[in-house]
Design a binder for these strands. Sequence first.
DNA 1: CTGTATCCCCTATGATACTG
DNA 2: CAGTATCATAGGGGATACAG
Lengths: 136, 136
Amino acid sequence: MDATIVSARRKIELYRADAASGGLANCPVRNVLQGIFGKWSTLLVMALAERPYRFGELRRLVPDISQRMLTQTLCDLQRDGYVGREVFATTPPSVEYSLTDLGRSMYDSLQHLLMWAEGNAGRVKAAREAFDRAGA
Amino acid sequence: MDATIVSARRKIELYRADAASGGLANCPVRNVLQGIFGKWSTLLVMALAERPYRFGELRRLVPDISQRMLTQTLCDLQRDGYVGREVFATTPPSVEYSLTDLGRSMYDSLQHLLMWAEGNAGRVKAAREAFDRAGA
DNA sequence: CTGTATCCCCTATGATACTG
DNA sequence: CAGTATCATAGGGGATACAG
C-alpha cells in the first residue's frame, strides 16, 4: 500500500468528515474546493497571480464575464481570503485587486492541475469523442 | 519575471484560447476542469484512487449521493476517460469501476490541491468568518 | 469607474418510481 | 444489483438598468 493509496483513503474520510452533522455539504475540504471552482474563480485567480488588476482591467481581460459575476466572484474570493481589495480615493475612484499570501499559496497547488489540464486536454477530448462514437 | 508569472500568463491565454469561437465555454482547459469539479466527481475519483469499487459499494461509501447522480457522474468520468467500467456476468450482474491510467495521472495532479485544501481549510474558514463579522 | 438592484432563465441536482 | 425515466426544485449565472 503506497503513499498515494493511503492518502486517498485519508482524503475520503476528510471529505466525509462532517457527514454526520448535516451531510457532505458541511465537509471542510469540499467547502474550500467549491470556492475555487466557480465558473470564473480559477480564471480570476490566474489573472491576479500574474499581477494586481483593477476592476475595469479585469473586465477587459475577461470579456465574457458579466459585471455582476465579476463583482460577485471577486467578493467571494476576497471573503475566502484569496484576494485583497484596495480602494484608491482618486476621481473617479479606482479599486485594485491582488492575491494575498493565502491566495498565492493556493494557486501554487492549483497550478499542478492547471498544467495537467493544459497538457491533457487533447486526451480528454479524444476520450469523449470515442465514447460518443461508441454510444451513437 | 519568474516562472510562475510566465506560466500564469500562458494559462490565461489558454483559458481564453477559443474565446473567438464561441466564448470561453469552448476553452479546452475549462472543459477539462469542469469535468473534474462537479459536485461528486472529485469524491468519486478519490474513492477509485484507493481501489476499484462496485456500484453498490460506492453508494454505501457515499451515502449522500442519489442513485441518479452516482450513475451520471460515473458515466461522465468514464466519458472523459478517467474511469473504466467492467461488467461481470454474474447473477445478479455486477459492475466494477476503476481509475484508468489517465484518471490516475489526473488524480496525481489534483492531489496537490486536495492536500492544500485539507491543510488550509481552517485558514479559509477563519477568513470567511472575519469577512462576515466585518460586514455585519 | 466601480459597483447594486432586479428580473429571468437554465442547468445541475434531487426524490421517487420503475426495469432487465 | 445496477441502472432508467420522470418530475420537481434551487441556485448559479446572465441582461439590463440604476447609483455613488
